[in-house]
Design a protein around this nucleic acid. Structure first.
Lengths: 143, 143
DNA sequence: TTTATATATTTACCTAAGTAAATAAATACC
DNA sequence: GGTATTTATTTACTTAGGTAAATATATAAA
């Protein structure tokens, strides 16, 4: 087989990503959630209460993006925000409603992930993960 | 090594994608272009004149997204749109200005792509491309 | 302690990508 | 030919993600 070109890899990354988000959004519609909202709920479910900074750093996104999404999550009753000891920061926690609903969402997303990756063997999954990790990324030290 | 979990692959895909777009945007700033605008110019450079439908189908996105981006590209003098024989469709072509500037942009993007993938051997690039292609995707036939 | 700097969050404003519905032209059907 | 359906594009509206600048609090430095 002919060697693949860099630009075609980047294009494939693009398409793979867009398709997964689009499709995940349709699966989450029944829960009145968007993919990016779920990403935050997932964090909170996994790590417990977090500050906004912890969230955007973990998700590798930016502060204003998280602010906006949290506002929507709060409006819809998924999270609450309270002041921390440090009065600049806000501590985010799941509401009881969220804690009740999250297991279902998690199952649904897990089955979506599985479906997306169903053509790959476990070995291929490990490979893919490793290769994705080798992409130059934000945390990288270029020196 | 422990087997990777589906959700961690999806997370890695997310992060890889977001970082590449973010970074590409900063590289393209000097050309007054955004990544998604470049995606369209790249198509036109590669395939010649195209209809809008051909563009959004190739990029695996939606019609309104392309309409919007083309409006901006037209405002900035990169493309022009003329009516086709079929009066519903619009034929998109690069302006002389775009044809003049594109080679530089292409060089810049190529070096960005190379940098993003610099940690991967050619064999790993081929692997990554193959694995990305195995993700369940829009064109897929599930039967 | 007062001033300067750093940090956490928000606001304002931009582009991107999506869905649903409107519009207009082409095609199929009777 | 006239009606119904399909196709190409656009409009309106939603969320997402980004940068730059504003705000408020905390920390460092003089």
């Amino acid at each position: 087989m002919k060697d693949v070109e860099n630009r075609d890899i980047m294009h494939a990354l693009n398409q793979g990503f867009r398709y997964t988000v689009k499709e995940l959004n349709t699966r989450l519609k029944g829960f009145d959630l968007y993919a990016s909202q779920w990403a935050i709920l997932y964090c909170l479910d996994r790590f417990g209460t977090m500050t906004q900074t912890e969230i955007w750093k973990y998700l590798n996104t930016e502060a204003p993006t998280v602010t906006r999404t949290l506002v929507r999550l709060e409006e819809n009753g998924w999270i609450s925000r309270k002041q921390g000891k440090d009065k600049r920061e806000r501590i985010i926690e799941l509401t009881p409603l969220a804690i009740e609903k999250i297991p279902q969402v998690k199952d649904s997303v897990a089955s979506f992930d599985q479906e997306m990756l169903s053509s790959l063997s476990q070995q291929e999954k490990n490979q893919l993960f490793t290769l994705l990790g080798k992409l130059k990324s934000a945390g990288e030290n270029t020196e």
